[in-house]
Design a protein around this nucleic acid. Structure first.
Length: 414
RNA sequence: GCAGGGGUGGUCGAGUGGUUAAUGGCACCGGGCUGUAAACCCGGCAGGCGACAGCCUUACGUAGGUUCGAAUCCUACCCCCUGCACCA
């Protein structure tokens, strides 16, 4: 099966330029393809996994992926969307972010010297060297303003009289230039990205065609949302990061372990390499027992977590989760706070500990949760806000504090 | 620069001198039902103290002022949006 069809079947293709030509390109000798990423943080997030997986599929099919980091554009600050200007970053920050992003991409694609070895590039390398006059003369001539303002994003902004800064307007041209440059330098002929990038991407296709006289292509993915309408990977705390420092592996695992029943198959297609046939079965809900559905979610969570954090970490996360919800079991991965024996001798209030362990943000909230019957000590409900912990509560040298069903904290007497 | 509109709790958004920690939605948290799902129901959602009846402190862009009393009125300043002007 053509890789392009693989992408289609897995749900990656929302819009594309001519399918026949893309197929031809991808079924032929090594092609070079690229995706752009923002260097605004030192870590990518779950949303980025979608295009990363596309790169990975293509590399597996023998093509060369390029991860382009928008360091140059980040130097300008991009006000796309209606929120404020994206914060401008220093070159140092961008470099360090780029290194972080490269490491994360390396989990999915090989950066070796082979023909299909991946590359990571920073558009600051060429954008910062541009000469305005030359750029206008050589590149600007290919852009027709009346065509540009018809682009969906721009047209909306103009209609709403919402203001469209010159920087934002130029963004498309810079991005198109990136494509051209990658084409000239690496023979890149396919760019992929989010559906919101469609206009920018096809502007690049046009530019390549006009300047180089070669067909260049585009594939965009739709924004992936959950069945409840949220952006995939969005949590109360913000984004679901790939970096374990920003999102602990356990939390990352739990996010996927708890997806809506209806999302199992869809997410598995996009975020794992599990066979399509297998996914078909995995994602089926009707007629399945509760255990089977839960097992499917576990499979999904393990697969994604393994890709991002490696097998060992994924297994640990799975085991911790099993222990947590299966009762008893292995608590070695639960967050832990050490309590001095001498302090314990005097007794410590549960309220105080709830705050100290970070389980709850304030003493007031702790009292409230006790009132709401949401606090447990060693699996026994705490009913009195004045409850004090003493040595007697530490069975084998430890005690477990719990808020609700999902957050636990281990207290270790030392 | 001129004119108009606006800045309210995580977010959206009411309120426009006085029972107000500030209606409501969303998000979030606890409980119930369950399957660590969805939907639904109940409760909570500034902080501190508490004998749980309450008490105290801090909050409506920032700083002052008027008033017995202000998120609400006045003054100055900051920021955002819209229009006009300036802009070669």
């Amino acid at each position: 099966m053509s890789v392009f069809d693989v992408l289609k079947k897995r749900g990656f293709v929302y819009q594309s330029t001519d399918e026949t030509e893309i197929r031809e390109l991808l079924d032929g000798e090594r092609a070079t393809v690229y995706v752009g990423y923002d260097p605004t943080a030192e870590s990518l997030h779950a949303g980025n996994l979608v295009t990363i997986m596309m790169l990975a599929h293509l590399q597996r099919a023998g093509h060369r992926p390029i991860g382009l980091v928008g360091g140059g554009t980040a130097l300008v600050g991009d006000p796309s969307g209606r929120t404020e200007m994206r914060k401008m970053l220093t070159p140092e920050q961008i470099d360090s972010n780029l290194a972080g992003i490269r490491n994360q991409l390396a989990q999915f694609i090989e950066f070796d010297d082979s023909d299909s070895g991946a590359l990571i590039v920073n558009n600051a390398d060429w954008l910062t060297k541009l000469n305005y006059i030359e750029f206008l003369r050589d590149i600007g001539r290919y852009f027709a303003v009346n065509q540009m303002i018809k682009a969906k994003g721009y047209a909306e902004r103009l209609e709403r009289e919402q203001g469209l800064s010159f920087i934002e307007f130029n963004y498309q041209i810079l991005q198109a230039y990136d494509y051209l440059l990658l084409h000239q330098k690496y023979g890149c002929r396919l760019q992929m990205g989010g559906a919101d990038q469609w206009g920018n991407i096809v502007a690049g296709c046009d530019l390549v065609r006009r300047v180089a006289g070669v067909g260049a292509h585009a594939i965009t993915v739709e924004l992936i949302t959950t069945s409840t309408g949220e952006k995939m990977g969005k949590t109360a705390a913000g984004a679901l990061w790939l970096s374990p420092e920003r999102t602990p592996v356990y939390d990352f695992y739990q996010y996927w372990r708890n997806v809506d029943d209806r999302d199992i198959g869809r997410f598995a297609k996009i975020l794992t390499f599990i066979d399509l046939d297998e996914i078909e079965e995995l994602g089926r809900i009707e007629g399945k027992s509760v255990d089977e559905i839960n097992a499917a979610k576990e499979t999904l969570a393990v697969a994604i977590t393994t890709l991002v954090h490696g097998e060992e970490a994924a297994m640990k996360a799975r085991d911790s989760a099993r222990a947590m919800f299966g009762g008893g079991g292995d608590l070695s991965n639960a967050p832990t706070t050490e309590i001095g024996l001498e302090r314990l001798a005097g007794g410590i209030s549960v309220v105080e500990l709830l705050v100290e362990t970070g389980l709850l943000p304030s003493r007031k909230e702790a009292r409230r949760k006790i009132d709401e019957k949401g606090i447990y000590l060693n699996d026994g409900i705490v009913t009195d806000a004045r409850r004090v912990l003493t040595n007697d509560d530490f069975a084998a040298g430890h005690a477990v504090l719990r808020v609700g069903k999902k957050s636990r904290h281990r207290l270790l007497a030392v």
